[in-house]
Design a binder for these strands. Structure first.
Length: 640
DNA sequence: GTCAATGTCATTTTT
DNA sequence: TGACATTGAC
């Protein structure tokens, strides 16, 4: 077995202990870069070798990318045709639900609504109920509701004494019924419904306990209450469960992740064997020491100290410049310097706290240095892609009102607000979907555009091959023509995105389960499967950097108010999470780390001043000033 | 019903 | 800054 440096590796002592431990509940505390994926895959291979059927193993990862990586490393020679199930919580749950949707009153072709679907649904509901749009903000409602559901709070039980709460409850109820009507589930439903399914159907629970007799959970510190409940349900009987985590890398509290699940696990499985992986194989001593200084300021950590046999390495450069523009220029010059020293562009990554920071950096890099944004927008979130996918979803399930409304007038068929309003009334009256309402409507009134739309979808429903269906839809709907007529680079981009989607469909159709349903599921749950092959500088948020590593890392925006974000100032818990986020970013670096800070930047259209981040000031003592160094951006170097 | 111009508002992180 | 909604002219 080779590691990522392409040298032959063996397991160190603590790794071996974990890999070959008895099949009892176990928890592995794996520090950053300590080879946890290696341990996980070795252990899975070990189980298979010792006679466990590969297909009775379920490994849950945090991202689909991690799942793919792990799948590649599972020893297929040993497992033969059987394969372990590897996926994220959401994709595994979706699979379980497809097999049993009827028990919950869904069809097996139910649709998955992602975050932006949720937002637009809520927005529509607020309008429909004639509530104040400035008060009931979709994104806020989505997150409040998600929290309710994660905490398993029944909205019926909430007191509605205050009118704003009453409004919310109304919205949430309507949202629930809208989802049901459309035969759709959101991300929370995927998890909740599986828990419900298991708790209400002991036979099913038995079945899946048998099916997934051996459990592995990666990034355990980022599981939420429901996910933990699900794991416990499955694991209780056979108690073959291995969880891997690092409380220092818990950065998804805002999404309900609770590193207390680690304590809970140890309480629920008091006999769990505990392993610690503390040797780091990734970073230089300089980087690791800096990382440790940053994270050790947090309280309530499980005690551990990473160490490495790697060389001391280059010192960390802390660079403070005058403005965000200068910062971007500095990023460019660092990239050019590093590239000049013989590094590939793909060896370099730039991390930022928020997506909006990427723009100014892109401005400097475009045309000079090749770069790619790692899931800035997910590919499947792009407008043209969502449009086309909506077409396909509607073909699959004509009750999907959300999709119907999205595309009935794209490209323009002269079906505007007024017509849709009429269709809604019709649908309400007859208790049917918008699609069927449209058919009824057409019996009474002429509407050429709507008529052609209905015809388009009904014809499409008869097409068997998904590739043919795709071609039919983009051509006959007039979508391609619309883009071609628009002209301009934006439209050209959209066209090439659609062609890329076609590639994905062609690829998909060759797969074992090449169905349209399976494809649509992929689009809802997949993070960008972006080609790693090309030589690009990687740009991404700190969150997106988790699980990755790069020889050179540049962290920008290390200012008080950005990292840590100003929203966290008042909440010590939140502040600790920001520190962990910074720690995650630092520990991605293998050889060289640059920390950048700017004294002023444009935020939301206005210029504001920033002090260097407290996380940096603690260590780079020379920089106790609000502003220094002008625009020259000479690094302040710190040697340890 | 469409389009362009103007106005308003928000900015954390994501499966 | 720019995404997005609303307004007003055709």
């Amino acid at each position: 077995m080779k590691n990522s440096n392409n040298s032959y590796v063996v397991l160190n002592k603590s790794q071996q202990e974990a890999v070959f431990a008895d099949d009892t509940p176990m928890i592995i505390f794996a520090g950053a870069g300590s080879g946890k994926t290696r341990v996980l895959t070795y252990r899975i291979n070990h189980l298979i070798k010792s006679g466990v059927p590969a297909n009775s193993i379920l490994a849950i990862t945090f991202t689909n990318k991690a799942a793919r990586e792990m799948a590649e490393r599972i020893d297929t020679v040993v497992s033969g045709r059987q394969k372990p199930t590897i996926g994220t919580f959401h994709s595994v749950c979706a699979r379980i639900l497809r097999e049993n949707a009827h028990r919950l009153g869904y069809s097996s072709r139910f649709v998955i609504f992602d975050g932006s679907d949720q937002k637009s649904m809520i927005k529509k509901i607020v309008k429909e109920l004639e509530l104040s749009e400035s008060f009931y903000k979709p994104s806020m409602l989505v997150s409040i509701y998600s929290k309710y559901r994660r905490d398993m709070i029944d909205i019926e039980s909430i007191d509605v004494t205050s009118h704003y709460k009453a409004g919310r409850i109304k919205i949430f109820k309507r949202y629930e019924s809208l989802k049901k009507e459309s035969d759709g589930m959101d991300f929370d439903d995927l998890l909740l419904n599986v828990v419900r399914l298991f708790e209400e159907n002991p036979d099913l629970l038995e079945f899946y306990r048998e099916r997934f007799r051996h459990l592995f959970v990666d990034e355990f510190q980022d599981t939420n209450a429901i996910q933990y409940r699900l794991i416990r349900l499955l694991a209780e009987k056979y108690r073959s469960i291995c969880v891997v985590g690092d409380d220092d890398q818990s950065i998804y509290r805002f999404r309900g992740a609770d590193s207390k699940n680690i304590e809970l696990f140890m309480k629920d499985f008091p006999d769990a064997a505990i392993f610690k992986l503390e040797q780091n194989y990734r970073s230089t001593k300089a980087i690791l020491e800096f990382a440790h200084k940053v994270i050790s300021k947090n309280s309530h950590r499980t005690d551990k100290q990473l160490w490495t046999e790697n060389p001391e390495g280059e010192p960390i450069d802390f660079i403070r410049v005058g403005s965000d523009r200068d910062e971007a220029k500095k990023v460019l010059s660092i990239i050019e310097t590093e590239h000049g020293r013989g590094r590939n562009y793909s060896d370099i990554a730039v991390f930022y706290r928020m997506n909006s920071q990427s723009r100014i950096i892109e401005l400097e890099l475009t045309g000079v240095v090749p770069y790619k944004i790692v899931k800035g927008h997910r590919f499947y979130d792009r407008r043209e892609i969502k449009d086309i996918i909506s077409y396909m979803q509607l073909v699959l399930n004509r009750n999907n009102n959300v999709c119907f409304e999205r595309i009935v007038n794209v490209p323009s068929r002269k079906v505007g607000k007024k017509t849709i309003e009429l269709l809604r009334e019709e649908a309400l009256k007859n208790g049917c979907s918008l699609f069927d309402a449209a058919k009824l409507f057409l019996k009474k009134r002429k509407n050429a555009g709507l008529d052609s739309f209905i015809g388009l979808i009904e014809k499409a429903e008869k097409i068997g091959s998904i590739v043919e269906l795709f071609d039919y839809l983009i051509e006959q709907s007039g979508y391609m023509d619309m883009l071609k007529n628009e002209g301009g680079t934006v439209s050209e981009n959209r066209i090439s995105n659609i062609l890329e989607l076609k590639n994905a469909i062609v690829e998909h159709s060759k797969k074992e389960d090449g169905s349209l349903e399976a494809f649509l599921e992929l689009t809802a749950l997949t993070d960008d499967s972006n080609d790693i092959s090309e030589d690009n500088v990687n740009l991404m948020t700190l969150h997106a950097s988790k699980g990755l590593e790069f020889p050179v890392v540049i962290i920008v925006g290390t200012d008080d108010g950005i990292i840590p974000h100003s929203n966290s100032f008042s909440d010590p818990e939140q502040l600790q999470e920001e520190r962990r986020l910074f720690y995650v970013g630092i520990t991605r670096a293998k050889e060289k780390l640059y920390i950048l800070s700017a004294a002023s930047r444009m935020i939301a259209g206005s210029l504001s001043g920033f002090a260097a981040s407290r996380f940096a000031r603690e260590h780079f003592k020379e920089n106790n000033y609000f502003y220094f160094g002008g625009n020259n951006g000479e690094p302040i170097r710190k040697y340890w």
